[in-house]
Amino acid sequence: MAKLLNSKQTTLRDRVVVSGVGVHSGKPVEMILHPADRNSGITFLRVDREKGTEFEIKGSFSSVIDTRLCTVVGHPDKGMVATIEHLMAALVGYGVDNVLVEIDADEVPVMDGSSRAYIDAIDQVGLKELSAPRRYIRVLKPVRVQNGDSVGELLPYNGTRFDVTIDFDCETIGVQHFDEEMTPDIFKKEVSLARTFGFVSDVERLWAAGYALGSSLENSVVIGDDQKIVNPDGLRYEDEFVRHKTLDAVGDLALAGAPLLAHYRSYKGGHKLNFNMLEALFSDDSNWEWVEASVPSRNSARVAPSHETGAIQVAMGPETN
């Protein structure tokens, strides 16, 4: 497993290439994850090799231009990168603060429909710490969003916790609940393998509209008209559906720009709700504050005031595996 540092920012030790197809376009994609400097965050570099052009898109909620089928970032007059949520979940869920994502298509490769291929890519090259403390966004008071029967809340919490409930009128899914402290280890073992899912009727409708052209049983859990799972190998987790919705939430909230110190609760949520939560959080400066990790002299985890700035510093333990 990659070395994860609670106190200092990280990046990749080397570049790593991930290739696949876009779930909606069905077209081949090559993506290169590059190491990046401290405080640079996650940035997409959209490259058009035929035209010889390129432009950058910040991995931020302010870059989001669509959330209907997936999370899409981009510029209205330049272009976009779609379906970023599984990659964003892998990076932030696994403790990568800074990376440049070079990509030669309009969509991140779907791989097997989960985040696991990206986790494997990170493990392939490993992480290195940078000479800057990790920054967090601390939620200071409850923030709530409701879209019809979808409800989300960000609550103050000294950690990062995801509490996700889904409710489908389908006997195979029904009501499922997942609630965990989202550490890198928990993300890898309990969330990263959960695949995207859908219904045969929905897939056929999307195909007719020119979407989901790369969708298959190799990258999606598909539920048939009889409400049974079509995939011959079945599920990876008994409650894989809610775990994938949690994976999506981790990826969407990664667009905050730094790890959140918060308890995120969602009911019947999706990409739109997750995006609206970030809009609501940052709409009022009194909702949040920056905090910075500091390296203690002993193995400890505490919260200590910064006498220089009046801010709060989160003092974490030393390097762990």
Rank of each mutant, 00 (worst) to 15 (best):
V16P: 08
E107Y: 09
D226E: 12
D106H: 12
F282I: 09
V17H: 00
D284C: 08
N287T: 06
R46P: 00
S150K: 11
L261R: 07
I84W: 02
M80E: 15
E204W: 01
L69M: 13
Q176C: 09
N299F: 08
L213S: 13
P296I: 11
N219M: 09
G148W: 07
L155F: 05
T320D: 05
S7N: 12
S40V: 05
A208Y: 03
L100P: 02
E50T: 11
W290P: 00
G26P: 03
R205L: 14
M1C: 09
D37F: 09
E308R: 05
P156W: 06
R116G: 00
S306M: 08
S294I: 13
T71L: 09
R205F: 12
Q9L: 11
S215T: 15
E171A: 07
G317C: 05
Y118Q: 12
G26R: 04
T43N: 05
F275L: 08
W207T: 12
D14Y: 09
G126I: 07
M80A: 13
V164F: 04
V21A: 02
N219I: 06
G310N: 10
S266F: 01
K58M: 07
E218F: 02
A311Y: 13
L45N: 14
T83H: 05
S192G: 12
V203N: 03
E279Q: 14
A2F: 07
H271D: 04
I166F: 02
S220F: 05
G251R: 01
V81I: 15
D225T: 14
W290Q: 00
R13N: 15
R298N: 10
G152I: 02
S114G: 06
